[in-house]
Amino acid sequence: MLKKRIIPIQLLNGGRLVKSIEFGGFRDVGDPVKSSSVYNSQFADELILLNVAREPRSIASLLDVVVEVSKVSFMPLAIGGGIASSHDAAALIRNGADKVVMNTVAYRNLNVITETANRFGSQAVIVSIDVRWDPSMNDYVLYSNCGMTTEHVTLEQHIGRVIGAGAGEIMVQSIDRDGSMSGFDTKLINRAMAVSPAPVIGAGGSGNYDQLREAFLETGVSALACGSLFNFSDSNPLRAKAFLANYGLPFKKV
């Protein structure tokens, strides 16, 4: 049986880690290498590192960080933000990433997913989907380009396409909940899980352990990515899993 995962999600902006609220209002939350080292000692299950710098959208700044982070972090490392080609993905993997996270490129060029999956395996490709709830449409709307560009495709259509292209994991992130610490959008996670044969990671809204319990138990999701929870509260992955284990949720034993 596969274990549930708690994944600290770290946002990189110009060499520093930041935390956003609804994808804006960055606050400095430390150094990426030191922070990754701490998460390693707290037995996080995996790390996600995303470049959120708006300019330039390239992987250049990620390449150096990946090398340094992989020296201190002995767990699966997922890296993304600005991947434009399968060469970008390959460069990140060569530098120490185990998985790459693709977002905007997944709307523009599915071949990048396919080429990367063919070369490194589908498990190496996470497609991240940023979503807002639109009350006027009474539905979720997908956004690319750091939440700035509206995409005219439904959640279900997009997941179908990227899975068909070779994605091995789907991350759904609620922009509305980002940085709010008000809990995960379980309805969104359930929508994604209903159509995704691949594992789903829920993101956006982590604020306390009860919300993690609720999201795991109400959705059966395989992983939750947490930013604010670990950045701004006296919490860590070890304590989170100890709490959740009391509700029968399976986590790795160390």
């Binding site: 091995g168 594992p199 986590f251 790795k252």
Partner: peptide
Amino acid sequence: VLPHVGWST
């Protein structure tokens, strides 16, 4: 689902 990816005992 294959591959088997993740933490197992």
